[in-house]
Amino acid sequence: TFVKLYFGGRYNFLDGKRSNVTFGLPPTEKALDAYLEILEGSSLPWAVAAIGDCVVETGLAKLAIERGGHVRVGLEDFGGERQPGNLELIAEVVALAKQAGRAVATPEQAAKILGLPR
């Protein structure tokens, strides 16, 4: 089992335009704290995602990495003014992990964390 913590971003992820219409909690430290309080006492692995925003620019990726969580990253979730590629987004999260002293999972390790069949 793997818990995905979704946060609503500042942009409509369908058309990329800034929007005041969102869902769920905003991509903030207080919102992450609320989710983590719900998971307190659990050993379930978890990841953050900012749907319609940049998980790195919001600070959510850094917070998750520092607190032992994982980060869902890619163009599927991204929203914002800039137009990065998937590799650029991944490189940003890898850099945050290195800064925090966290190793980046290999494909085999990621499959195990996600509970995927071999």
Rank of each mutant, 00 (worst) to 15 (best):
Leu63Ile: 03
Leu60Trp: 01
Ala50Gly: 03
Ile38Thr: 12
Thr58Asn: 07
Leu44Ala: 09
Asp53Glu: 14
Ser43Ala: 15
Ala61Asn: 11
Leu63Met: 13
Glu66Pro: 02
Trp46Met: 12
Ala47Gly: 15
Trp46Asp: 07
Trp46His: 06
Cys54Thr: 02
Ala61Leu: 06
Gly59Ala: 11
Ala64Thr: 11
Cys54Ser: 15
Asp53Met: 01
Gly41Glu: 08
Ala61His: 11
Leu44Arg: 11
Val56Asn: 00
Gly69Ala: 04
Ile38Trp: 13
Ala50Lys: 02
Ser43Phe: 06
Ser42Met: 11
Ile65Gly: 10
Ala50Gln: 01
Leu63Arg: 06
Ala50Tyr: 00
Ala50Pro: 00
Ile38Lys: 12
Ala47Trp: 00
Cys54Arg: 02
Leu60Phe: 03
Cys54Asn: 14
Trp46Leu: 11
Pro45Met: 10
Val55Ser: 10
Thr58Glu: 05
Trp46Glu: 08
Ser42Cys: 10
Leu39Asn: 02
Glu40Gln: 14
Glu40Ile: 06
Val56Gly: 07
Ala47Phe: 00
Asp53Asn: 01
Ile38Asn: 14
Glu57Val: 05
Lys62Trp: 04
Ala64Glu: 10
Ile65Met: 11
Leu63Phe: 04
Gly68Trp: 02
Thr58Met: 06
Leu63Trp: 08
Glu40Tyr: 10
Ala47Ser: 09
Gly69Ser: 07
Gly68Pro: 07
Trp46Ile: 00
Ala61Tyr: 05
Ser43Met: 08
Cys54Tyr: 03
Gly68Ile: 06
Val55His: 07
Ala50Val: 11
Leu63Gln: 09
Gly59Ser: 08
Ile38Glu: 15
Gly68Met: 02
Ser43Val: 09
Lys62Ala: 12
Ser43Pro: 06
Glu40Cys: 08
Ser42Thr: 14
Ile51Asn: 15
Glu66Lys: 15
Gly59Leu: 00
Thr58Gly: 03
Gly52Glu: 14
Val55Phe: 09
Pro45Ile: 09
Glu40Pro: 12
Ala49Glu: 13
Ile38Tyr: 11
Asp53Ser: 01
Ala61Met: 12
Gly52Arg: 10
Ala50Ile: 02
Leu44His: 10
Ala47Gln: 06
Ile65Cys: 08
